[in-house]
């Protein structure tokens, strides 16, 4: 890949020729405030926060400006500060703030920006919108849309279009009334939304958050238990419960993306209906048993039937849901007991 060298403040950095100034800066650990930029999506240039100055040329937004050999970029300066401060303040006053109750608290791009720029309460008070006057949309069982917190970055709109190709939402209405809407402004559950949650993952603020969200204490890498795509996932754990699942961005298969089942369908693991003890049917009713009782009975019955009818009396169905190691042992056990009658649902 072709490289170019440019100056970012006092640092000389090397960047890919296709990169924008913002990407080059973020890759080198230089923070430029930004809101509508997302590495998975095409640059949008909507929030105007990532403004920088290219020496000799003036101000520009860094998410849309390509890097060039030899240019010198300033990310700080009175002009820059003034411009992005106004942009940030207008966003903040139109954002319903309840940070401590917000699911995105400590993980919010608007908080990052406020902390970086420094906000003067007095200036905000003059502009402050007071009421949380737009209704929440909690029609989808997996996530809530709060238009009062929306900053109109369009990341959800672009995710739905660019990543999923669904296009369930778009900008609607004009001017101060602009908001993200489904077709005919219906509840999201009545739209063509596929509930994949990709927009929820990318929302930079608390406008799209999972229902009943609980932050995990730790995460464990795994593979999605549903279809054969084999998406990489991280299971979020709290105590002995799975409380979240997210896509593994390093997986070459799914690049961090998931569908509704993979992201939200993990409740079966901790479900109270899980079998937790061996059962033996006595007089038509299942009775709890110890492992020894159950396994001894299975062994005795298998031996009895094989003596009576021959090894072919036994057949086994293995599972497309257990691991390779377990499938291997299953066929090894049946074949070791004298029968090749082992199959599974691939034939269905």
């Amino acid at each position: 890949m072709d490289k170019v060298v440019l100056k970012l403040d006092d640092l000389e950095v090397m960047a890919n020729k296709e990169d924008t100034i913002l990407q080059a800066a973020l890759d080198h650990g230089i923070y430029i405030p930004h809101l509508c930029y997302h590495p998975d999506l095409k640059p949008f240039g909507g929030c105007r926060l990532c403004v920088v100055e290219i020496e000799g040329r003036g101000l520009t937004i860094s998410c849309k400006a390509p890097v060039e050999e030899g240019i010198a970029v300033r990310t700080e300066g009175p002009e820059i500060d003034k411009m992005r401060r106004v942009a940030a303040e207008l966003l903040i006053v139109n954002h319903y703030s309840e940070c401590l109750q917000c699911a995105r608290n400590t993980d919010c791009k608007l908080q990052d920006i406020a902390a970086y720029i420094g906000i003067e309460e007095g200036r905000l008070q003059r502009l402050k919108r007071t009421a949380r006057d737009l209704p929440l949309d909690d029609s989808n069982p997996f996530f809530i849309r709060d238009p009062n917190k929306c900053v109109l970055c369009g990341i959800c709109v672009r995710t739905c279009e660019e990543i999923n190709g669904v296009g369930a939402i778009d900008f609607a209405f004009r001017g101060l009334d602009t908001r993200i809407s489904t077709l005919k402004d219906k509840p999201i559950v009545e739209s063509r939304c596929e509930s994949c949650g990709e927009c929820v993952v990318r929302c930079p603020v608390g406008a799209l958050v999972p229902q009943n969200m609980r932050k995990p204490e730790r995460e464990v890498k795994s593979i999605c238990p549903y279809c054969g795509t084999g998406c990489g996932i991280y299971l979020g754990i709290r105590g002995d419960k799975i409380v979240s699942a997210r896509g593994d961005r390093d997986s070459v298969v799914n690049k961090g993306q998931l569908c509704v089942k993979g992201r939200f369908g993990y409740h079966f693991v901790n479900h109270p209906d899980r079998l937790t003890t061996p059962l033996i049917k006595r007089n038509g009713v299942f009775v709890e048993a110890t492992w020894d009782e159950a396994l001894d009975l299975v062994t005795a019955k298998f031996k009895e039937a094989q003596e009576k009818y021959g090894p072919e009396a036994l057949a086994g169905l293995s599972s497309a849901r257990v691991t390779n190691e377990e499938n291997y042992l299953f066929q090894k056990l049946l074949r070791s007991l004298g029968t090749n009658s082992v199959d599974h649902c691939a034939r269905l």
Partner: peptide, 13 residues
């Protein structure tokens, strides 16, 4: 299914 390929590859046929 997540491991239907594996069940075949492991000889559960």
């Amino acid at each position: 299914q997540n491991n239907v390929q594996g069940a075949c590859d492991m000889g559960c046929l």
